[in-house]
């Protein structure tokens, strides 16, 4: 609505004001109309419903790992043996030092996002910890980077224990 280009000389201020007002009201309407179009590209409600994943931990034996999907990403859940807990607590990791106690809620359960912080590949469980085959980064049993190009430790997702053997990954 390009009414501003009007010549207004012969008709006084009232029309000038009226046209400006109408342009503003019309422009606001056009802007408001954009909202549903833009909003439709945001995650839909069924995608948002997957923002949380409930995981039953029973059945994971000590020393075993399970991979679950959360928001489309793999999450490693490792049930650590007392030896693994001890080994993880012994050091602060490599290039991104962080104590193990800060990375777990319950030392028996390590929950980390299985996406290498370097280029986004999924590391494999090999020996103690994980190895990322894309560029050779290595992570220990606390998910901390011990060698290679990865700049940071594996990320810990938000999660909470809802029962003794059940966790919910993601924020409510």
């Amino acid at each position: 609505m390009k009414k501003e280009t009007l010549s207004v000389g012969d008709c006084g201020d009232r029309r000038n004001f009226l046209i400006k007002l109408t342009s503003v009201v019309g422009g606001a309407g056009v802007a408001a109309t954009c909202v549903p179009f833009v909003a439709s590209m945001n995650p839909s409600s069924d995608v948002l419903a997957k923002a949380e994943a409930e995981v039953d931990l029973s059945g994971i034996t000590p020393g075993a790992m399970r991979t679950v999907a959360w928001q489309g990403k793999p999450v490693f859940i490792l049930r650590r043996t007392p030896e693994q807990i001890k080994a993880a607590g012994a050091s602060d990791g490599g290039s991104d030092p962080e104590p193990d106690s800060k990375r777990v809620q319950n030392p028996e359960w390590l929950v980390v996002i299985g996406v290498c912080t370097h280029m986004g590949c999924v590391p494999n469980k090999e020996g103690p910890g994980w190895v990322c085959h894309c560029h050779g980064s290595q992570f220990d049993d606390s998910g901390r980077v011990t060698r290679g190009p990865a700049p940071k430790n594996l990320e810990v997702p938000p999660y909470r224990f809802v029962a003794g053997n059940k966790i919910v990954i993601g924020k409510a």
Partner: peptide, 24 residues
């Protein structure tokens, strides 16, 4: 952007648009 042209999916994708997509 939300529609799927597949006989197995298109009816469902319309329902997805009508129910789940924001302002779909």
């Amino acid at each position: 952007m939300h529609y799927k042209a597949d006989t197995a999916l298109s009816f469902d994708s319309i329902q997805h648009i009508m129910r789940d997509v924001n302002y779909g």
